[in-house]
C-alpha cells in the first residue's frame, strides 16, 4: 500500500514542480515590461556608453589642434602587443634648442587588447580612451590609425 501512495506522491510532486516552473515562464509571458531587449541601431542616438568604457585609444586634441604627446615612447614600451608605434622627429624650438617631438603616433586597433597600460603609464596624460565601439571596417588597413592629427603641435607647458 505504501508503494502505491509513494507512487501517487511522486506523480503529484512531479506535476507540482513542473507547474511551479511554468508559473514563472507564463508569468514572464504576460509581463512585457520585463523585456530587456535593446533595439540597437534605433537607439543609437541616445545610447550612452560609460565614461570609462575602453573603446579605442585616442589622443585628445584641443581647439588649437594641440596635443600633449611629447613622443617619449613609454606607451610603446609598455604595450604588450606592439600595437603602438611612436615615430619621433626632432624639432628646433623657439629658443634654438633641438627637441624630440612626435611625428607620427601609430595605433593599430586590430592588435589592441585594451589593457589600458599605455593610457595609464603616459607621463603627460596624452592618451585616453574614447567611447566609440563600432569598429567594423571594410579594409583592414584602416584599422591602423595615426593618433596625432596632421599639423598638430605639442600643447604649451607640457614637457
Amino acid at each position: 500500500m505504501s508503494n502505491i501512495s509513494e507512487y501517487f506522491k511522486d506523480v503529484f510532486n512531479g506535476v507540482l514542480s513542473l507547474l511551479k516552473g511554468m508559473r514563472v515562464t507564463a508569468g514572464y509571458f504576460f509581463k512585457p515590461s520585463a523585456i530587456v531587449t535593446q533595439k540597437y541601431p534605433e537607439n543609437r542616438k541616445n545610447l550612452v556608453m560609460f565614461e570609462r568604457f575602453k573603446g579605442e585609444v585616442v589622443m585628445p586634441h584641443n581647439e588649437n589642434n594641440e596635443h600633449k604627446c611629447t613622443g617619449c615612447g613609454i606607451c610603446e614600451i609598455n604595450c604588450p602587443n606592439g600595437t603602438i608605434e611612436v615615430i619621433p622627429k626632432s624639432i628646433i624650438t623657439e629658443d634654438g634648442k633641438k627637441k624630440r617631438a612626435i611625428d607620427k603616433h601609430i595605433y593599430r586597433l586590430g592588435m589592441c587588447t585594451f589593457c589600458a597600460l599605455c593610457v595609464k603609464t603616459c607621463p603627460s596624460n596624452a592618451l585616453a580612451f574614447s567611447q566609440k565601439f563600432e569598429h567594423a571596417v571594410f579594409d583592414r588597413a584602416s584599422l591602423t590609425k595615426q593618433l596625432n592629427k596632421p599639423g598638430s603641435q605639442l600643447m604649451k607647458g607640457v614637457e
Partner: peptide, 13 residues
C-alpha cells in the same frame, strides 16, 4: 514570439 516573450526578449522585429 512566444518564446521571446517568455525569455524577456522581443523576438523577430
Amino acid at each position: 514570439k512566444v518564446c521571446a516573450f517568455i525569455q524577456n526578449r522581443l523576438g523577430p522585429n
